[in-house]
Design a binder for these strands. Structure first.
Lengths: 310, 310
DNA sequence: GTTGTTGCATAGTCAAATCCTATAGGTCTG
DNA sequence: CAGACCTATAGGATTTGACTATGCAACAAC
């Protein structure tokens, strides 16, 4: 209905006149006066430099040119109409797209969220980009992605605070993770910071916030960590941990989920937050809003579940 | 260029803004003021009940809905543009259609005209309808066909004279036609009206003007014609004449063209005219005009040719 | 943090396009 | 040939579209 107002009046008139075979009849149907149609068709014919209607007979008929032009006009109308319906699809979440940035850590932590989102809104095209947190923040600030999922203190140092808007989902404790064959695979008591310095570590490289966080901790307690492996691939690290006698540091829920053994540190590392970040005051697409809502629901469930098993 | 005026301004603006990523830049390119764009886009968004552009950042970007709608708008624009070009094709005669009505007689007489027309304008769709002359006149009057080719006195009795417009192409003499095996296949002298009454005739049925013309002639000279065959198919009659000892009455050029033997009548039958008929004051499509022009040229050639062989 | 710059939004005015009523000028019908 | 029907034209009212001037927010530089 609204669409009728975007599509040019003159073409709507042409279509109606062709349909009714009469200016008078079409004018009645369109609730406009007959001279309006005369005038509009005249202008249209002048624009196209060709007569479109043959008014010589008892009933108005399309000329050769009119017949051909009408087909195109109908298709064009159909396109605009389809466009309006497609917009409603976007608002219904039956179409659309979501560009999501996350880190290797949040990837592991929230992929079940993404699975439910896809299950709920299968028409929405999801585009995920795995990258260091700093890049996520820049991408969000520059609107290259709709939303980021980060794992850190609310603001990173490199980004001006008010370019970004944050929503905390939940908090995670960091602990040491070892495989089932590691000497400490049975250890239940906490491990001291000093002992951490003895371990052979597999960690993400310094591009990643988690790694920098570990480095800060080591500095604070004057530990010189021993790195067996540095990588930007968390799956590589986890796979390594499972089979070799190395340790790494991960959020507790990833450790559990991957069937690794968790050892708490003493003193504990600063807890970190799983946070959604958006461009401050930026446009949020329907898909982005839906994702955000689902994420909060999912986080609440996740917390309950973690509380039970922790 | 003209097309830019038919396609809605608001959508042209949307396309330009999306292209330049800026209202200001687009306004410069379109030679309008920037507030005009703000206003138009606002209205467009209100019509569609959805934001289309995200103006929160440094550069204007399409929202999810805007991106989708833009695709449709571009296609619609393309359609209208294509329509305008198609109209020019019609005027160029590289497209279009021609609905032609003719009788079995004019079919035989003018099919070479149709062949040249098709050769000259291969893009024009030709639709021919073979029917009795009276039907042609009605069809022309009611614009069901663009042009008729008839073979008769200018006006038939059943149609009001001023509904139809005529253009005579050339005149034809009617004569008796017999096959090569007919007893009179060698006769060079004229045949009297009385002798015609002796012949076994194959003629079109009374739906056709030629047949009624023959009946009138017979009435005038008090002849009771003997009909062996009556048909609405001229090709059937010609085929029959070729192999059986019947006679028929045909325009002289058809007789020659079909390799039949022509015998003149005495007194001669009224000559008849090959005539183009149009709806009076009706719209003539470019194809119709072109056909008319070609027909007159063709008739001039045909006359010269006939003069040589007659 | 303050200031300057850039860019879109808003307000108010004006011209032009659109639509209306009334009427003229055509066909077609009886 | 008169009446009915239909489209075209003319002239006035309304709406739309575009402009200028200005406001406000974001970004950049000092």
């Amino acid at each position: 209905m609204q669409q009728r107002d975007i599509f040019p009046r003159s073409l709507q008139y042409l279509v109606a006149i062709a349909e009714y075979g009469s200016y008078t009849r079409a004018a009645e149907a369109l609730h406009v006066s007959q001279p309006t149609l005369s005038q509009q068709i005249k202008q249209l014919e002048e624009s196209l430099q060709s007569p479109l209607l043959d008014r010589s007979g008892r009933s108005v008929q399309l000329t050769n040119a009119g017949e051909i032009y009408l087909r195109h006009a109908r298709r064009a109308w159909g396109e605009l109409d389809g466009g309006a319906r497609a917009i409603h699809d976007v608002q219904n979440l039956s179409r659309g797209s979501l560009r999501l940035g996350w880190t290797p850590i949040t990837d592991y932590l929230t992929c079940s969220l993404l699975e439910s989102f896809n299950g709920l809104y299968p028409g929405i095209n999801i585009n995920t980009l795995d990258m260091p947190q700093d890049d996520i923040e820049v991408s969000v600030a520059e609107s290259r992605i709709d939303v980021g999922i980060v794992f850190s203190k609310p603001f990173s140092s490199t980004t001006r605070p008010n370019e970004i808007e944050t929503e905390v989902l939940f908090e995670e404790k960091l602990c040491i993770a070892v495989g089932k064959n590691h000497p400490r695979a049975k250890q239940r008591e906490r491990m001291s910071a000093q002992n951490l310095g003895q371990e052979s570590l597999a960690l993400l490289n310094t591009d990643f916030a988690l790694r920098r966080h570990v480095d800060d901790y080591c500095n604070e307690y004057d530990i010189e960590p021993r790195f067996a492996i540095e990588s930007n691939s968390l799956s590589a690290i986890i796979s390594l941990i499972k089979h070799r006698p190395h340790a790494t540091i991960l959020p507790r829920s990833i450790v559990k989920q991957q069937g690794l053994h968790a050892i708490n540190l003493s003193p504990e590392m600063q807890r970190k937050e799983i946070t959604l970040i958006y461009r401050k005051n930026g446009y949020k697409s329907p898909a982005t809003i839906a994702f955000s809502e689902l994420a909060h629901l999912w986080a609440k469930n996740e917390l309950q579940h973690t509380a039970q098993t922790q």
